[in-house]
Computed example of a mutant assay.
Amino acid sequence: MGHDHPDPSTDDWANPDFCPFCGTRLTDPGAGFIDHLDESESCRERFADWREHIADDIGSEWSG
C-alpha cells in the first residue's frame, strides 16, 4: 500500500500540518492528528507500530 506523505527532501516532510503516516492535511497539528487517527485505521495502526518501536528509546518519559 502506498502512502502520500510529502517527500523527505521537502520542507513539508516535517510539517505538523500533515499526518506523518499518510500525508493528509490535518485540521490542526495537535487535536487534528488525534481526530485523524480516530478516522483512519491505517494511520492508527502505523502510529501504534511507531510507538512500539520507540518505547524503549523514550522509557519512562513517555506520557502519551
Results as ranks from 00 to 15, higher is better:
Met1Lys: 13
Gly2Ser: 15
Gly2Lys: 13
Gly2Trp: 05
His3Ser: 01
Asp4Trp: 08
Asp4Ile: 06
His5Lys: 11
His5Thr: 11
His5Tyr: 11
Pro6Glu: 14
Pro6Arg: 11
Pro8Gly: 08
Pro8Trp: 04
Pro8Gln: 04
Ser9Arg: 12
Ser9Cys: 10
Thr10Lys: 08
Thr10Gln: 05
Thr10Gly: 04
Thr10Ala: 03
Asp11Met: 05
Asp11Lys: 04
Asp12Cys: 07
Asp12Met: 10
Trp13Tyr: 13
Trp13Lys: 06
Trp13Ile: 07
Ala14Thr: 11
Ala14Gln: 08
Ala14Phe: 10
Ala14Glu: 15
Asn15Arg: 04
Pro16Gln: 05
Asp17Asn: 15
Phe18Met: 02
Cys19Pro: 00
Cys19Ser: 04
Cys19Met: 04
Cys19Asp: 04
Cys19Trp: 01
Pro20Val: 05
Pro20Ile: 02
Phe21Ile: 01
Phe21Ala: 02
Phe21Asp: 03
Phe21Gln: 00
Phe21His: 00
Cys22Val: 00
Cys22Glu: 04
Cys22Ile: 01
Gly23Cys: 11
Gly23Leu: 03
Arg25Thr: 06
Arg25Glu: 10
Arg25Asn: 08
Leu26Ala: 05
Leu26Trp: 08
Thr27Ala: 14
Thr27Phe: 05
Thr27Ser: 15
Thr27Pro: 06
Asp28Cys: 10
Asp28His: 05
Asp28Met: 06
Asp28Val: 09
Asp28Asn: 06
Gly30Glu: 13
Gly30Asp: 15
Gly30Ile: 09
Gly30Val: 06
Ala31Tyr: 08
Ala31Glu: 13
Ala31Pro: 02
Ala31Gln: 03
Gly32Asp: 01
Gly32Glu: 02
Gly32Leu: 03
Gly32Asn: 01
Phe33Met: 07
Phe33Pro: 00
Phe33Ser: 00
Phe33Lys: 01
Ile34Gln: 10
Ile34Tyr: 12
Ile34Asn: 08
Ile34Lys: 11
Asp35His: 11
Asp35Leu: 05
Asp35Glu: 11
Asp35Cys: 07
Asp35Gly: 07
His36Asp: 03
His36Val: 02
Leu37Gln: 05
Leu37His: 05
Leu37Ile: 00
Asp38Leu: 13
Asp38Cys: 14
Glu39Asp: 15
Glu39Cys: 13
Glu39His: 12
Ser40Trp: 05
Ser40Asp: 15
Ser40Thr: 14
Ser40Asn: 15
Glu41Phe: 13
Glu41Gly: 12
Glu41Asn: 13
Ser42Tyr: 12
Ser42Pro: 12
Ser42Lys: 15
Cys43Phe: 04
Cys43Gln: 09
Arg44Trp: 03
Arg44Met: 05
Glu45Ile: 12
Phe47Tyr: 00
Phe47Met: 06
Phe47Glu: 00
Phe47Ile: 03
Ala48Met: 14
Ala48Trp: 11
Ala48Lys: 14
Ala48Glu: 15
Asp49Glu: 15
Asp49Ile: 07
Asp49Ser: 09
Asp49Thr: 11
Trp50Arg: 02
Trp50Phe: 04
Arg51Tyr: 11
Glu52Lys: 07
His53Lys: 14
His53Ser: 14
Ile54Phe: 03
Ala55Glu: 12
Asp56Glu: 10
Asp56Arg: 13
Asp57Leu: 13
Asp57Ser: 13
Ile58Ala: 13
Gly59Ala: 07
Gly59Tyr: 07
Ser60Glu: 09
Ser60Leu: 08
Ser60Asp: 10
Glu61Cys: 03
Trp62Ala: 08
Trp62Asn: 04
Trp62Leu: 01
Trp62Ser: 07
Trp62Thr: 02
Ser63Gly: 08
Ser63Lys: 14
Gly64Met: 04
Gly64Asp: 14
Gly64Tyr: 09
Gly64Trp: 05
